[in-house]
Design a protein around this nucleic acid. Structure first.
Length: 288
DNA sequence: AATACCCCCTGAGTGC
DNA sequence: TGCACTCAGGGGGTAT
């Protein structure tokens, strides 16, 4: 389900269940997700304490007392279901709590010393988990080469100009390139470009200072608003009123083909086309 | 080096 | 009701 804001929402939802707890029992119900689980996966987790739960781009990182880090990626359809000691079920970042039919795709179950139970469910199985030594984490195959955190302090117009300098690739592709900016996905790239008034097919290297600054600001705004939308629902995420997380967020461009562009005074219509195999939604009237 | 395409997998939705 | 087809938020790998 995730882009960066959703992963952050999931992280915040898992934190109270996982941080400080010990894995008392781990169930790996199949040997692989997208990739094979690392050798000794269950053994290397069992008995370890989770010191901290962090995020880098779209990766969740559980820092373990063994000195290893449990690296988790949700792919397209990964979810975590949390069962509290009192039996209450929750799903951080979810649109709607699903208490039953997910069971067929419950692949990994973490039983924790504090009585919580955390289940990883992934229908399409594009997610994965890995164990990496803490010292080698940044150089590990998943994290090596990841670009700047878009919500960190370093992303501004000047950095975008540097990253995109000389690039003939379309803005859409450059923004999706995790080696440049890490954490943007298809939805929020469409949203940021719409708000910034920039055409997705335009060559990334052609941004001037003003445009780059505007793009940096809209990226930060779009992500921060989405995190806030997810975060603000965390305290009552167990409710099933459908007002939670990702889906509740009202996108201005994504998924709105044929609808009026939301840019004030624009009057254009959102169109859809395919770029590098993925749907792009944009307004030809206000995005130049 | 940079870009373009195909692939992994399952399910939901649509049109006939 | 069934079938065929398209589409989906991810990224890794390979071929140009």
């Amino acid at each position: 389900m995730p882009e960066l804001p959703e992963v952050e929402t999931v992280r915040r939802g898992l934190e109270p269940a996982m941080t400080g707890a010990v894995f008392t029992r781990v169930e790996a119900r199949r040997p692989d997700l997208r990739f094979a689980l690392p050798s000794g996966f269950v053994r290397r987790l069992t008995g370890q304490r989770i010191l901290a739960l962090a995020r880098r781009a779209k990766y969740l990182l559980a820092d373990l007392s063994s000195g290893e880090v449990l690296v988790m990626h949700l792919g397209m359809s990964g979810r975590f279901l949390v069962t509290a000691p009192n039996g209450e079920l929750s799903e951080p970042g979810a649109f709607e709590l699903d208490t039953g039919q997910g069971q067929a795709h419950d692949h990994i179950v973490f039983h924790l010393s504090n009585g919580f139970c955390v289940t990883y469910n992934d229908v399409r199985r594009f997610g994965f988990m890995d164990l990496v030594g803490r010292d080698g984490l940044e150089a590990s195959r998943h994290l090596a080469g990841l670009g700047v955190e878009p919500l960190g302090n370093s992303l501004d117009g000047a950095l975008i100009r540097t990253l995109f300098e000389g690039k003939a690739a379309p803005l859409k592709a450059a923004l999706l390139d995790q080696r440049l900016i890490a954490g943007l996905g298809n939805i929020y790239v469409c949203e940021a470009l719409n708000r910034a008034g920039l055409a997705p097919a335009r060559a990334a290297g052609t941004l001037d200072e003003t445009e780059a600054a505007r793009l940096a600001q809209t990226i930060r705004d779009v992500l921060a608003e989405a995190v806030e939308a997810g975060g603000s629902t965390l305290r009552d995420y167990a409710q099933t009123d459908g007002s939670l997380g990702y889906f509740q967020h009202r996108f201005r461009a994504y998924g709105r083909e044929g609808e009026a562009c939301a840019t004030p005074g624009c009057g254009g219509v959102i169109e859809r086309f395919v770029q590098s195999g993925r749907s792009t939604f944009w307004c030809a009237t206000c995005q130049k």
